[in-house]
């Protein structure tokens, strides 16, 4: 599944980053390397962006950015 589809309160694990270039690099810099656990914390009123816990920091990602992250669900 995609990170953009991970429901609030659920945890997943990064499988792959499916884009290239600067967006890929930015996602990696935020700590989203394969194997990283990630949890959806909340969703803003409009549904976009989503807030995640990534390696101990709260980070907001837009849905289209989060859709470049392939994950597997851990719950």
């Amino acid at each position: 599944m995609l990170l953009s589809q991970l429901p609030v309160g659920k945890t997943g694990e990064v499988v792959a980053i499916t884009c290239s270039g600067l967006v890929r690099r930015r996602l990696l810099d935020l700590g989203l390397v394969p194997g990283t656990k990630i949890r959806t914390l909340r969703q803003s009123p409009g549904g976009d962006p989503l807030a995640f816990n990534i390696r101990g920091a709260v980070i907001a990602l837009r849905l289209d950015t989060a859709s470049h992250v392939k994950i597997r669900s851990l719950d």
Binding site: D29, G31, I54, R55, G56, A57
Partner: peptide, 12 residues
């Protein structure tokens, strides 16, 4: 760096 999540800080 934050001692409680050191790993994520080491990238920078």
């Amino acid at each position: 760096a934050d001692a409680t999540c050191l790993e994520r800080n080491l990238n920078l």
